[in-house]
Amino acid sequence: IGSLMYASIFGNVSAIIQRLYSGTARYHTQMLRVREFIRFHQIPNPLRQRLEEYFQHAWSYTNGIDMNAVLKGFPECLQADICLHLNRSLLQHCKPFRGATKGCLRALAMKFKTTHAPPGDTLVHAGDLLTALYFISRGSIEILRGDVVVAILGKNDIFGEPLNLYARPGKSNGDVRALTYCDLHKIHRDDLLEVLDMYPEFSDHFWSSLEITFNLRDTNMIPGSPGSTELEGGFSRQRKRKLSFRRRTDKDTEQPGEVSALGPGRAGAGPSSRGRPGGPWGESPSSGPSSPESSEDEGPGRSSSPLRLVPFSSPRPPGEPPGGEPLMEDCEKSSDTCNPLSGAFSGVSNIFSFWGDSRGRQYQELPRCPAPTPSLLNIPLSSPGRRPRGDVESRLDALQRQLNRLETRLSADMATVLQLLQRQMTLVPPAYSAVTTPGPGPTSTSPLLPVSPLPTLTLDSLSQVSQFMACEELPPGAPELPQEGPTRRLSLPGQLGALTSQPLHRHGSDPG
């Protein structure tokens, strides 16, 4: 009997000691992992102490058991019943959930998450997105703005933001810190809205009876308010094209079509300037034949640059190039080494500058006005007194259609001029006259002087055409309008007829 009692007592005591040691061994194993994590990542002392304290409290609170892992091991129907039991206190005593059906309560219970916070733990920081609604079931918390405590909340209090009033989550206007050990039930806004969409009859009752104890939403960050730039940057990543407008005076608003859609830094370009900076079609017209890549860069430059609305530039004389043409100036200075066709295309550029300027006046029909002061630039669209967005969009579309028509007509005119030049060069190729044979009589004449090349004649003739079109064909006081194609086609051969009437002889060394 004594040996039996000794064996039973010894066996029970050893089993008890073994169970104690097993729990202690698990605790030390998990604690060792936490300390190894702290050492590996070199976490500083204040945060390291918070980690160790939280682990110790969580171990004593749950005995080292992962409740979520245990809950996920059950089937979904059983999980709903378990969640309904775990959140029964909240669902029974909170006013917004009263009167809900059994199915609605089960769906809500599945969406709730339980959070346990030790003292000093910050649940929400200032500036964080308010993605959830919090219900306090135990403990107390404090809300701070800077170093000032603005509120202390306790059991059955609710904090967050009214989700039904805002389409997008706002930002917190303060820090939420736990004063004691707290148990909180939180539900994400997407989950709550999903359940309320499934039960629309409960939705009206819920929003009407929901009383948020403390609204954390920062009202200064609401979209459309003066301080909402940061919020707009976070939620409006896919922005449309940006529009900046110059201020319109009362006198300017009476004149229709007073602005032109141009790229940034293009205030001095012609009315047909689009795409790359520098001139019509993204580059100076005089350098068009020598740089074919300008047409390839036109599309990307047009689509990537934001639109700006600026006044037209001052008018340019008909014979003056659009500006920024070092290529043609070098050719004029060193005409001995340049291609003979460069002079002809220089005359073509003069005609283009004249036609572009006159067509700009035809479509816009307003006098040039000086540029406004820099303080009046970049007025935002949302400022008071601005035109409605639809009106601005319609004006932009009208300007775009005008620019497209202008570009089409300029292309047709350019093709006409090039065809005339090619026809003239085919009839009378460039050549130098040879020395004529002296006559049989004693009164022999001296050799004839060489005839100037055709490109120079073409430049003079085209300059005469531009001056003739600019000065004589337009009646005084009438708006400057571009001439039609047949009129220009008839004027060019008439001007060139006198020049080509002389018999030109080919030089023996000319390969053409």
Rank of each mutant, 00 (worst) to 15 (best):
D128W: 01
D128M: 01
D128V: 01
L129S: 11
L129E: 10
T131G: 09
I136W: 01
I136T: 01
I136V: 09
I136E: 02
S137P: 02
S137C: 04
G139N: 01
I141D: 01
R145P: 01
G146Y: 06
G146W: 01
D147P: 13
V149Y: 02
V149T: 09
V149S: 05
I152K: 01
L153I: 05
G154E: 07
G154W: 03
G154N: 09
K155S: 09
K155D: 12
N156C: 06
D157V: 02
G160S: 02
G160E: 01
E161D: 04
E161Q: 03
P162I: 03
L163F: 11
N164R: 07
L165D: 10
A167Y: 09
R168L: 11
R168P: 10
R168E: 10
K171S: 06
S172D: 01
N173V: 11
G174K: 04
G174R: 05
A178Q: 01
A178I: 03
L179T: 08
L179P: 01
L179A: 11
T180V: 04
T180P: 02
T180K: 03
Y181T: 11
D183H: 14
L184M: 08
L184T: 04
H185K: 11
H185Q: 08
H185T: 06
K186F: 12
I187W: 01
H188A: 11
D191C: 03
L192N: 01
L193W: 08
V195R: 02
V195I: 06
L196S: 05
D197A: 10
D197R: 10
M198R: 09
Y199C: 01
Y199W: 09
P200H: 05
P200N: 04
P200E: 06
P200F: 01
F202T: 05
D204G: 09
H205A: 13
W207D: 01
W207G: 03
W207Q: 11
S208D: 13
E211M: 05
E211P: 04
I212D: 02
I212C: 03
F214N: 03
L216A: 01
R217I: 03
T219G: 08
T219S: 10
M221T: 12
I222A: 11
P223D: 10
G224L: 09
S225G: 09
P226C: 04
P226L: 10
E230R: 12
G233I: 08
G234I: 13
G234F: 06
S236M: 12
R241C: 08
R241Q: 07
R248M: 13
R248Y: 12
R248Q: 12
D250H: 12
D252G: 09
T253A: 12
E254H: 15
Q255D: 10
Q255K: 08
P256N: 12
G257F: 05
S260H: 10
P264A: 09
G265W: 12
R266H: 10
A267M: 12
A269C: 09
G270A: 11
P271D: 15
S272E: 10
S273A: 10
S273Y: 09
R274F: 06
P280C: 01
P280H: 15
S284D: 15
S284A: 09
P285L: 10
S286G: 13
S287P: 11
G288I: 15
S291A: 05
P292Q: 15
P292N: 04
S294V: 05
E296N: 09
E298K: 05
E298C: 03
G299A: 08
S303I: 08
S304C: 06
S304F: 06
S305L: 14
P306R: 09
R308A: 06
L309N: 13
L309W: 13
P311S: 15
F312A: 04
S313W: 03
P315E: 09
P317L: 15
P317M: 07
P321I: 06
G323I: 12
G323E: 03
G324F: 14
P326C: 12
E332F: 07
T337I: 11
C338Q: 15
L341K: 05
L341F: 04
S342G: 10
A344H: 15
A344D: 07
F345Q: 11
S346Y: 03
S346K: 09
S349I: 03
I351F: 07
F352R: 07
S353D: 05
S353R: 06
F354I: 12
G356R: 11
G356D: 10
D357E: 14
D357I: 07
D357K: 10
D357R: 06
S358V: 09
R359Q: 05
R359E: 08
G360D: 07
Y363M: 08
Q364W: 06
E365M: 14
E365P: 09
R368Y: 07
C369V: 09
A371P: 07
A371N: 12
P372Q: 13
P372K: 10
T373L: 10
T373V: 10
P374W: 05
P374Y: 09
N378C: 13
P380N: 05
P380M: 06
S382M: 15
S383H: 15
R387K: 15
P388G: 14
L396T: 05
D397R: 06
D397M: 09
A398T: 06
R401Y: 12
L403T: 06
L403F: 10
L403V: 07
R405M: 03
R405T: 04
E407F: 01
T408N: 03
T408C: 13
L410C: 06
L410E: 03
A415H: 08
A415S: 11
Q419H: 14
Q419G: 10
Q419W: 03
L421Y: 13
Q422A: 09
Q422E: 14
Q422F: 04
R423N: 09
R423I: 05
R423P: 08
Q424L: 04
Q424N: 11
Q424W: 05
Q424E: 06
M425W: 03
T426H: 06
P429Y: 06
P430R: 13
A431R: 09
A431S: 10
A434P: 13
V435A: 12
T436F: 09
T436G: 11
P438Y: 09
G439R: 09
G439V: 12
P440Q: 09
G441T: 06
G441C: 05
G441A: 11
G441V: 13
T443L: 06
T443C: 12
P450C: 05
V451S: 06
S452Y: 14
S452G: 12
P455D: 04
L457R: 09
T458F: 11
T458Q: 10
L459F: 12
D460P: 07
S461Y: 06
L462N: 05
V465T: 12
S466E: 12
Q467A: 08
F468S: 04
M469Y: 13
A470D: 11
A470T: 13
A470N: 12
A470P: 07
C471H: 09
E472R: 10
E472L: 10
E473D: 13
P475Q: 13
P475M: 13
P476T: 07
G477V: 13
L481V: 10
P482Q: 07
Q483Y: 06
L492G: 07
P493Y: 11
P493R: 10
G497K: 13
G497D: 04
A498W: 14
A498T: 10
A498F: 08
L499C: 12
L499I: 10
H505P: 09
H505A: 12
H507I: 11
H507V: 09
G508D: 13
S509W: 04
S509I: 07
D510N: 13
